[in-house]
């Protein structure tokens, strides 16, 4: 494990730019309690390999509590790979290797039980992936396997989660029907509700709107903004307007490197790096 920190990562970052020719000197930290007080989730010098392919290069990034962070960049730049490391879901892939340190509330996520990390850091995937069960059973699945039903009514959890995901009104009369009876947008909101049912502290979303129409996309964006009071959100998106609409800070990835991470306004109006500007203005990617 590499244990380093970069001094320019304090929030709110005016800008954090990757500069290969002028690398910031890493300073050693003591143990894993190195995160700043406000950072919910923090990655330090993360490198990731798919077999012999080096997919992420020294990515360091902080995610502030109750903020939405967007990760943007061209296809294959490593943003999804990075996101999937934040809840260790990449460990399900064979022949992969992670180096560096990722901390949740200052504690290395490798020190947690893997199921605990994934309960605390929920994830919503690119395509809706409801289980072949009823809507009710989909929502209650997480609380059930995590032993969270003691003292709480399952129906209560289902209603609360569906309300948080803005799906209650549409689904309340068909809770015991198959989840596949819902439309694509509703299924994705069901997946968000399912993730919310275990009360995650961080919610990771990997291009959650890429398969949805503009109306469903708008609903999910509204949902994200309303959810940030309850959890920290990290969203990977190809849609720059979406990043501009929902994110407090935005990170730009290119070829496995975090080029720039700054307030969303800064990224879109006054990027520090030429690569970011080129991408934002559509000159490549």
């Amino acid at each position: 494990m590499v244990s380093t920190s970069e001094t320019k990562m304090a929030y709110p970052p005016e800008t954090t730019a990757y500069a290969p020719e002028n690398k910031m000197s890493p300073t050693s930290t003591e143990g894993t309690k190195s995160a700043t007080a406000t950072a919910k989730l923090r990655a330090a010098n993360v490198n990731f390999h798919y077999g012999s392919f080096h997919a992420l290069h020294d990515v360091s990034m902080e995610f502030q509590e109750n903020k939405v962070t967007a990760l943007i960049g061209p296809s294959g730049c490593g943003k999804s790979t990075f996101l999937r490391n934040l809840n260790r879901i990449n460990e399900t892939l064979r022949d992969t290797r992670l180096e560096g340190e990722i901390t949740l509330d200052g504690q290395n996520i490798m020190d947690f039980d893997i199921t605990e990390v994934r309960r605390r850091v929920g994830m919503v995937f690119q395509r809706p992936n409801p289980f072949p069960k009823s809507i009710f059973e989909n929502i209650i699945y997480g609380p059930k396997i995590n032993g969270m039903l003691k003292g709480t009514s399952a129906a209560e959890i289902v209603e609360k989660s569906l309300r948080r995901a803005a799906l209650w009104e549409e689904a309340k009369d068909k809770l015991h029907e198959s989840a596949y009876a819902l439309s694509g947008g509703q299924q994705q909101r069901l997946c968000i509700a399912r993730a919310l049912a275990v009360n995650p502290e961080v919610l990771l979303l990997d291009e959650p709107c890429s398969a949805l129409d503009p109306i469903a996309t708008a609903k999910i964006e509204d949902l994200l903004v309303s959810l940030k009071d309850q959890c920290t959100i990290v969203i990977v998106t190809h849609n720059m307007q979406q990043a501009a609409r929902v994110a407090d800070t935005t990170g730009f990835f290119l070829m496995g490197r975090l080029i720039e991470h700054a307030k969303t306004d800064m990224i879109f109006k006054n990027p520090a790096c030429k690569e970011t500007e080129d991408y934002i203005t559509g000159r490549f990617g």
Binding site: N87, I89, T92, T115, E116, R118, R119, G122, M123, F125, Q126, R127, N129, P130, F131, Y141, G142, I145, N146, C191, R194, A195, V198
Partner: peptide, 17 residues
């Protein structure tokens, strides 16, 4: 689909579960 497996694992389920 792999996405189904990951959906359950991402909720904190063990592999066997």
């Amino acid at each position: 689909p792999r996405s189904m497996r990951e959906g359950a694992l991402a909720l904190g389920a063990t592999k066997w579960k």
